[in-house]
Simulated assay, not measured.
Amino acid sequence: MDSLVIAGLVFVCLFGGAMGGMWASRRLKEQHLSKETQEAVKLGVGMVAAMASLILGLMTASVKGNFDSTSRDVQQYATYLITLDVALRHYGSDADAARAALRAYTSHALDETWPGQLEPRPAEPGQVGAGPTTQVRVTSDVSEARLSQVGRLIRALDPKTPEQNDLRSEAVERYKSLSALRWVLIEESATQVPSIFTVVLIVWLTFIFMSFGLFSPINAVSVSVFLLCALSLGGAIFLILEMSTPFEGIIIIPPDAMQKALQHMVK
Score class of each variant (00 low, 15 high):
Ser3Gln: 06
Ser3Met: 01
Ile6Leu: 14
Ala7Gly: 04
Leu9Val: 06
Val12Pro: 01
Gly17Arg: 08
Met19Trp: 11
Trp23Asn: 10
Ala24Trp: 08
His32Ile: 00
Val48Gln: 09
Met51Pro: 06
Ala52Gln: 05
Met59Asn: 15
Ala61Gly: 01
Thr70Asn: 10
Ser71Cys: 00
Gln76Asp: 12
Val86Ala: 08
Val86Leu: 11
Val86Met: 09
Ala87Cys: 00
Arg89Val: 07
Asp94Phe: 02
Asp96Arg: 09
Ala97Glu: 09
Arg99Glu: 03
Ala104His: 12
Ser107Leu: 13
Leu110Gly: 04
Leu110Gln: 05
Thr113Ser: 11
Arg121Thr: 14
Arg121Ala: 11
Gln127Ile: 04
Val128Leu: 13
Thr133His: 02
Val136Leu: 09
Val138Lys: 05
Val138Pro: 07
Ser140Ala: 13
Leu147Pro: 01
Gln149Asn: 14
Asp166Val: 10
Tyr175Ser: 14
Ala180Trp: 06
Ile186Trp: 00
Pro194Asp: 14
Ser195Thr: 05
Thr198Ser: 09
Trp204Tyr: 14
Trp204Val: 12
Ile208Glu: 01
Phe215Tyr: 11
Asn219Gln: 12
Ser224His: 09
Leu227Ser: 10
Gly234Thr: 05
Ile240Leu: 15
Glu242Pro: 10
Phe247Glu: 13
Pro255Met: 03
Asp256His: 12
Asp256Gly: 14
Ala257Val: 08
Lys260Gln: 14
Ala261Met: 13
